[in-house]
Design a protein around this nucleic acid. Structure first.
Length: 584
RNA sequence: CGGGGUGUAGCUCAGUCAGGCUAGAGCGCACGGUUCGGGACCGUGAGGUCGGCGGUUCGAAUCCGCCCACCCCGACCA
């Protein structure tokens, strides 16, 4: 359809916004009638909104199908949403993703999940079709609906429970091949976001429940984002706060160890209060934080344990790093009540004298000398606590959270902390799934080897949300030309007058013949209503046909992104319109 | 899952604290008329299980209990 008459258009614009609209972009999408909320994290996509989603998908398909240097390219297919639970049991993700998995049971008590992601299904299908290295490399993808029972959907289209994802999976003979696939997808993603008019930065990320090694997220930087990342203004280092490293300079490593001393600290249960009372910087203290840790075991079950985490008092624990250091499925912060219940002294805890408890220490705190730490007795702390002498960590690792102003580990420049939304992520998975599913191929030497995999996702609705967030003003959406539902918004004023209607209809015909798509406002509404709707809906170019203009033998053009009206001769209208759109 | 909030017409909301006649407004919608370059105006009209169930009461949108949905903060999250 290259023409839509607004008198026939199913969705209508809203003068008032549903109260629960969240971000400005979300408000505009709802007000413009492009999307309609159905349930928490579930939306209906109306005709105009769907056209944009389709345009986004076309761009993504073009970039996925583009041939790489050695001729490899994505091939599109479609996997089911209904996936037998065994698939996820086999990869262990029925456990690691248990909370977000939508499960259902059929009439024969057979269990299924609504696919939250499809590594398992792709690797199974791969296995059935590939036996030889001659078939590799392969890149398979789909654009399909995913289901995730998010504990808390939010931000309009930012965190949905049902959404569309483009997910591509690469299969290579070895790591070197994976590197090629990964780089290809990385480059393709840069092009996709560029073409969609959304600025992103690739940032180092955590692979989390996906498994695997290298991974980058493509972050759209915005105040409404839920991810935190650290950016180095000098060398360009960019990383999600979950994995961001920074320079840790020890402050007291050179001090002579002094004798341990117990002091009274009545009522001092926070690092701030303690440091202030003693007149020392927070960095001179050692903070103890307790976590309940969940590990997966061989049988597919889980077991829990408690750990004490020691970190310098001026820093916070990075739970992702902690989880990775422990090889755990989950770590859960123990609040004061839980700590007390577990028999520890909240506010005066430390690893000193704590037997048979696993202790994880940040790699900085173990270097420092003569720190202040809890005495594990109410209202008592210890001075001059030293690692090795007074306590010993079972695991020493970088588990500190990077924060604004900390120094870049590449170039020592202070980094900026920013918020962002993850638009897409690329993972080097390695052989985790191919081994679990025995997806082997025979190499040139006749050796059986697991395919080396990568996986690459883009959230389509999230991208839509970012596009609107990025391309708007007070009046409405300003679609980038390549994504606009229609090229031209043709407004007929006083269309009940035959001369206006005839002029508008004939111009519509000419525009269609010229290959342009047209949203034609043929409603009998006042000019204000029509202009405001045109601004709200955001087509790149507005063309006004009215008695006033026709009297001058003209029509009027106005770029949505600009603020100038321009009269052009009716006879030259199509050529002028094409020129305006091309230069937009 | 913890904390907070909201649920009354298609939308935005008032009315609930202090129970009382046919439950209201604006916008939208329908019809008629006047208008026509930035969300016009006049008139007429349709539209409601007051989130649900139960209770208290002569009487419940209003008080009590349970439940549900949605939103916000946190936990959580590829």
């Amino acid at each position: 359809m290259t023409l839509m008459r607004m008198s026939k258009l199913f969705s209508k614009t809203l003068r008032e916004v549903p109260a629960d609209a969240e971000t400005e972009g979300h408000r505009l999408l709802v007000r413009s009638g492009m999307i309609t909320p159905i349930a928490a994290g579930v939306y209906a996509y109306m005709p105009l909104g769907l056209r944009v989603l389709h345009s986004i998908q076309s761009i993504i398909r073009e970039e996925m199908d583009r041939e790489g240097p050695d001729g490899r390219a994505g091939q599109e297919l479609l996997m089911p949403s209904l996936v037998p639970i065994e698939f996820y049991e086999r990869s262990g993700r029925d456990q690691t993703m248990a909370e977000i998995l939508f499960r259902l049971t059929d009439h024969h008590d057979r269990e299924f999940a609504l696919g939250p992601t499809h590594e398992e299904v792709f690797v199974e299908v791969f296995k059935r079709n590939v036996q030889s290295y001659r078939d590799l490399p392969l890149m398979l993808y789909q654009i399909a609906t995913k289901f995730r029972d998010e504990p808390r959907p939010r931000g309009g289209l930012i965190r949905l429970r049902q959404f569309t994802m483009k997910d591509l999976y690469s299969f290579d003979v070895d790591e070197a091949g994976l590197d090629v696939s990964y780089q290809m997808m990385f480059d393709a993603y840069v092009r996709v976001f560029e073409r969609c008019g959304v600025p992103v930065i690739p940032a180092l990320a955590d692979s989390g429940a996906m498994g695997g090694n290298d991974t980058h997220e493509f972050l759209y930087l915005t105040e409404i984002g839920e991810d935190h990342c650290l950016l180095c203004p000098k060398c360009g280092y960019a990383a999600n706060a979950e994995v961001a490293t920074f320079v840790k300079e020890s402050a007291y490593a050179d001090e002579e160890a002094k004798p341990l001393e117990e002091i009274d600290t009545p009522g001092l249960t926070t690092i701030e209060a303690l440091a202030e009372h003693l007149g020392v910087p927070k960095s001179k203290t050692c903070k103890a934080v307790f976590y309940t840790v969940t590990y997966g075991d061989e049988g597919g079950g889980t077991r829990e344990d408690a750990v004490l985490v020691a970190i310098r008092g001026d820093m916070d624990v990075n739970e992702s790093k902690l989880k990775n250091a422990l090889g755990a499925i989950e770590v859960q912060y123990m609040d004061e009540a839980a700590v007390t219940r577990a028999g520890f002294v909240a506010g005066s805890a430390s690893a000193v004298g704590l037997e048979k408890m696993k202790v994880v220490a940040d790699d900085l705190v173990v270097q420092e000398r003569n720190l202040v730490a809890g005495a594990n007795k109410p209202d008592k702390h210890l001075l001059n606590v030293n690692h090795d002498r007074d306590w010993k960590a079972d695991i020493v690792a970088d588990i500190a959270l990077a924060a604004d102003g900390m120094s870049c580990s590449n170039c020592q420049t202070p980094m900026d902390e920013r918020r962002g939304i993850e638009m897409g992520q690329v993972f080097k998975l390695g052989v985790k799934y191919s081994e679990a599913f025995e997806a082997f191929f025979l190499d040139a030497e006749g050796q059986q080897r697991p395919a080396v995999m990568g996986s690459y996702g883009i959230g389509i609705e999230r991208l839509l949300a970012a596009i609107v967030e990025e391309n708007r003003d007070e009046a409405g959406i300003i679609w980038p030309r390549q994504l606009a539902p229609y090229d031209v918004h043709l407004v007929g004023l006083q269309v009940e007058k035959p001369e206006v209607r005839e002029a508008a209809e004939s111009l519509v015909g000419e525009l269609e013949s010229a290959g342009l798509s047209v949203l034609y406002d043929d409603r009998e509404e006042s000019p204000g209503v029509k202009f405001n709707d045109a601004d709200l809906l955001g087509m790149p170019l507005r063309v006004t046909v009215s008695p006033r203009n026709l009297d001058k033998g003209s029509v009027e053009l106005r770029l949505r992104a600009g603020d100038e009206n321009e009269l052009v001769a009716r006879d030259a209208a199509v050529a002028e319109i094409k020129a305006r759109l091309a230069s937009d």
